[in-house]
């Protein structure tokens, strides 16, 4: 049913296809790449796109196409890891606040507000700088900026169902907070949280690319789209492909996640039905 309505929404379907392609590319990177992504050959530096190097070579003579393919792995790794960390944390904080109310709610939501009041890239930058460069630290830094909207959403959804008769009935049969949140609230707010996480993917990818661009994300020689775009910056006039290719990749993938998220919202959110 979900699948059928997705097919009926061409933009969302396009998004889904791009995301699927990204997953396939990441999985099959060793097969799809034509060169070793980190093998340097200075004799071949800054060659324009050709039959041998489809997207040209960079300043160290590495094949840009192969680096792009391996870079998909880095991007996917960061965004999946952030999502997996953020979904349960955001849900537990928001749902606990909504369920318990009172001072627990006040404290948890003030903390959330503090995190929300900073622009996420600035916050990620600060954490990343404090934790030191590296991909794991970038994941932690991005996760710290992504959970607050999820917590807000989970709290709002929990509040709608907190006093529903079916929750009260379960409590009157002896259900505790853990059971109510896990068995009753999770199935009801899962759709909106999944939609939110999908829409968030693009900002995770952009933040990751931004950190990479500033040298705080993935460290060389690991291929990462943001870092690739950054290193090509110096050769922008002579070697346009160095920034353009990873830039277009970032654009396409984040757009795809956005379209998919919008499509899922149209399909799953009963308020749009």
């Amino acid at each position: 049913m979900l699948w059928l309505s997705l097919v009926g929404n061409p933009l969302a379907l396009g998004g889904l296809i791009v995301v699927a392609v990204l997953v396939v590319i990441s999985a099959l990177a060793p097969l799809l790449s034509t060169h070793d992504p980190i093998a340097q050959d200075l004799a071949f530096a800054l060659k324009p796109p050709s039959l041998a190097n489809w997207f040209g070579t960079d300043e160290f003579g590495r094949d840009v196409y192969s680096r792009l393919v391996y870079g998909a792995r880095t991007t996917l790794y960061i965004s999946i890891l952030v999502t997996v960390i953020v979904a349960p944390i955001g849900f537990v904080i928001g749902a606990t606040a909504g369920y318990l109310g009172g001072w627990v709610d006040t404290i948890l939501m003030r903390i959330t507000d503090i995190f929300l009041s900073f622009p996420s890239l600035v916050l990620a930058l600060a954490f990343s700088a404090a934790l030191g460069p590296g991909i794991e630290n970038a994941v932690i830094a991005i996760a710290l900026t992504v959970w607050p909207p999820i917590a807000r959403l989970a709290r709002a959804e929990t509040l709608t169902f907190r006093h529903a008769d079916f929750v009260v009935a379960a409590e009157l049969q002896g259900a505790g907070m853990g059971r109510v949140l896990l068995h009753h609230i999770v199935p009801l707010c899962a759709p909106s949280i999944i939609i939110r996480l999908t829409l968030n993917m693009s900002s995770i990818i952009l933040t990751a690319a931004g950190l990479g661009f500033l040298g705080l994300g993935a460290q060389p020689p690991m291929p990462e789209w943001g870092a690739m775009a950054a290193s090509g910056r110096q050769y922008l006039l002579d070697a346009w492909w160095l920034t353009t290719v990873p830039g277009v990749a970032i654009l396409v993938v984040s757009l795809a996640f956005n379209l998919l998220g919008d499509g899922l919202r149209d399909i799953m959110d009963p308020r749009n039905a």
Binding site: A164, D165, F166, V168, A169, L172, Q173, G174, H183, H184, P187, L188
Partner: peptide, 22 residues
């Protein structure tokens, strides 16, 4: 828990008293 089980409640609205996804 056992005291709670001694009495049980039936609500007015059968549309709101059963979990819609269970």
């Amino acid at each position: 828990k056992s005291q709670l089980a001694k009495q049980q409640m039936v609500f007015q609205d059968p549309f709101g008293s059963i979990h819609p996804r269970h």
